[in-house]
């Protein structure tokens, strides 16, 4: 086909952005190619591994099976948006490092965003059980860690945030 482009405007990591996107592009393509956000990993590209996950309007989506044109008017957060402008890590990022929840690192951005997303929905005064956390994080595949330290890191942040409230 002859290329078909569309101008879209969205908020990425707190900044209003406008860009021309090819209608055939996935949101992964757009975030990586148009904005250089390489924490958005290209894994399976068919929604099975979770490495490309981003937060869109408060919910975690696999950006590989999300058309870039659908991002028009949306609020998008990638891993780059979690750390402070000076590079200071967020509590979840720090917990992943402290709890050795990272090995090869390919699944890590997706896991951290999913964790951020589910912890942000946690009602005040409540904690998720381990089984609930496992279910909420089950859309991300990891070959290296066996998930144990990832669960530990997310649980640690959940408790720390609850105590801080």
């Amino acid at each position: 086909m002859s290329a078909q482009y569309k101008l879209i405007t969205c908020n990425i990591n707190g900044h209003e952005r406008s860009t021309m996107v090819d209608v055939r592009a996935s949101l992964t393509d757009m975030l990586r190619d148009n904005f250089g956000l390489t924490s958005v990993k290209k894994g399976c590209e068919v929604g099975e591994c979770g490495a490309c996950a981003v937060i869109i309007d408060g919910e975690c989506f696999n950006s590989c099976i999300y058309l870039a044109v659908w991002a028009d008017g949306k609020n998008i957060t990638t891993l780059e948006g979690l750390s402070a402008p000076d590079g200071t890590l967020s509590d979840i990022q720090r917990a992943f490092a402290e709890e050795t929840a990272v090995q090869c690192g390919f699944c890590t951005p997706g896991f951290i965003l999913e964790a951020e997303c589910c912890l942000s929905h946690l009602e005040k005064g409540k904690l998720y059980t381990d089984d609930e956390l496992r279910k909420m994080l089950s859309g991300h595949l990891c070959r290296c860690t066996g998930y144990d330290n990832i669960l530990r890191a997310v649980r640690k942040v959940m408790i720390a945030r609850a105590e801080a409230k």
């Binding site: 929604g47 979770g50 996950a53 099976i65 999913e114 279910k135 909420m136 991300h140």
Partner: peptide, 9 residues
């Protein structure tokens, strides 16, 4: 159905 991200879309 699937996992959380699949259920979102």
């Amino acid at each position: 159905v699937g996992g959380p991200q699949i259920r979102a879309i």
